[in-house]
Structure formats: structure tokens, C-alpha cells
């Protein structure tokens, strides 16, 4: 692992974080502008614009949990300080994205399904459980005084919650859900199909005019997560360094 070395990570992230940030701003800017200028959907009307926010935010929330869970795994198994910092850093960002996913979904559900919130929908429920896992992670982190022990305990909890990611993903296939199946995969498949000149795909994906804002805002939000995550990991490393220096200075005085 190239980035496992803290010094190499710091010199990499010094450039990577702002680059991801600029990419995020650029892609989100273009994506949202396109998203607001494309014509209304003939069935959904104006609310189709949530298509350029809700699926992407939801997917990034799962990505954030995966990032936290995998970092937690490396932290627990290899006792790697940088992995611990990465897991801790991902939690609040992931909680934010998960909350946004639930909120935008609620805004979309009201006009489309006639309900803000549906307790029997497995995808809403598993996403809510994902949110609760983020909250539990942060609660556990703040409840134990010894920082190393708190991080390790919270990381074990993060690993316990990893199977829920599969439930979020597969819930629409396993149970009856208001949510549709994989709009992203279908769109990508349909897109490749049209690129290769194969004519109409078996399942039509998004209308071609919606594909660009859909994809741009997805990569934009993914870059936003990456930038925020790197910045938070860097601040964790600095905080640790500052703590060590303070102890050193106190020893000399």
C-alpha cells in the first residue's frame, strides 16, 4: 500500500485534496447547471431534477460507509494509525451524506409516491439503519476517554455494520420496494449499448439528455467526499502531531 506511509500520504494528500475539491466544484457546477436546464420529464415534471441529487448522494453515503468500514478493518487488523484516522474522519461526512439521502428521498417521495416516508420500504429502512450506525460510531468514539481504545471499539462496530451495506444494495431485489432496481447500472448498460451501435438496449435507461448531468453530479459528489475525507484525515494527523509536540514541550519545561 503506497499511501500507508504517513509521510507519503501527507505529501500525496497535500495535492490530491485540493485537486479533488476543484474537480468536485467543476463537475457539480456543470452537472447542476445542466440538471436545472434540461427539459422536464413528461411524467415527473419538475421533480425529475432530484434525479441529479438523490441517487448520487445515496450512493456516496454507501461509499462513505465502505470507506469507513475498510479503514476500520485495516485499523483493527494491522493497528495502523493512519487507517484509524481515516475511519474516524469518514464518519461525520458519511452521516451527513446519509442524512441528505434520506432528506432528498423524502422530498422526492412526497410528489411521486404520495408519502414522505414509508416504513415498509426496505431500502429506506436499511439506509436509516446505515445512518444509525454512523451515529453509534460517533457516540462510541466520544464516550470512551482513552482515544486509542475508543477508536478501536468504534472500528469493531463499523465492521459489524458492514453487512448492512449489502442489505441496502440488494434490498430492492430481496423484498418489495417502492424503489426501482438499479437505475445506475441500467443507464450505464444502455449507454454502452448505444455507444457500440447496438441500437435499443433491452431495458431503456435514462433519456440521453439526462445522462450527462446524472453522471457529472455523481462523480462530482464522489470527488467532494474524497476531498472532505482527505482534509479531515490530514487534520487528524496534525492534531496527533500537535498533541505529541505539546507532551514534548511539557516534558522540557
Amino acid at each position: 500500500m503506497f499511501l500507508a506511509n504517513p509521510q507519503r500520504f501527507m505529501s500525496f494528500s497535500k495535492w490530491a485534496a485540493p485537486i479533488f475539491g476543484v474537480l468536485a466544484v467543476g463537475m457539480l457546477g456543470i452537472g447542476f447547471t445542466l440538471g436545472f436546464t434540461v427539459p422536464d420529464d413528461y411524467q415527473q415534471g419538475q421533480t425529475v431534477r432530484l434525479l441529479f441529487l438523490h441517487p448520487q448522494v445515496s450512493f456516496v453515503s454507501m461509499m462513505a460507509y465502505a470507506a469507513m468500514g475498510v479503514s476500520a478493518f485495516f485499523g483493527v487488523v494491522f493497528r495502523h494509525l493512519l487507517a484509524d484516522a481515516a475511519a474516524r474522519a469518514a464518519a461525520p461526512i458519511g452521516a451527513g451524506f446519509t442524512f441528505l439521502a434520506l432528506l432528498t428521498g423524502s422530498f422526492w417521495g412526497r410528489p411521486m409516491w404520495g408519502t414522505w416516508w414509508e416504513w415498509t420500504d426496505p431500502r429506506i429502512m436499511s439506509e436509516l439503519v446505515l445512518f444509525l450506525f454512523f451515529l453509534g460510531y460517533m457516540a462510541l468514539l466520544s464516550a470512551v476517554d482513552d482515544e486509542a481504545k475508543a477508536t478501536r471499539a468504534a472500528n469493531i462496530l463499523a465492521m459489524v455494520g458492514l453487512p448492512n451495506l449489502a442489505v441496502v444494495h440488494f434490498s430492492v431485489y430481496w423484498w418489495n420496494s417502492l424503489h426501482q432496481g438499479s437505475s445506475i447500472t441500467t443507464t450505464i448498460m444502455a449507454w454502452f449499448h448505444s455507444l457500440s451501435g447496438g441500437g435499443q438496449a433491452d431495458k431503456p435507461g435514462l433519456a440521453p439528455i439526462y445522462v450527462a448531468p446524472f453522471v457529472l453530479s455523481f462523480f462530482g459528489l464522489a470527488c467532494l467526499f474524497a476531498a472532505l475525507w482527505l482534509v479531515r484525515i490530514r487534520s487528524e494527523v496534525w492534531r496527533r502531531k500537535a498533541g505529541a509536540l505539546a507532551v514534548q514541550a511539557a516534558g522540557k519545561a
Binding site: A139, L140, A143, V144, D145, D146, K149, A153, A154, I156, L157
Partner: peptide, 12 residues
């Protein structure tokens, strides 16, 4: 087990 040694164990 995760809450061992924490403050306010029950709520946690």
C-alpha cells in the same frame, strides 16, 4: 462489550 469502560454505559 464495546461500551466497556465508557462513561454512561447504559445509554451508549
Amino acid at each position: 462489550a464495546l461500551a466497556i469502560g465508557s462513561r454512561r454505559g447504559g445509554v451508549l
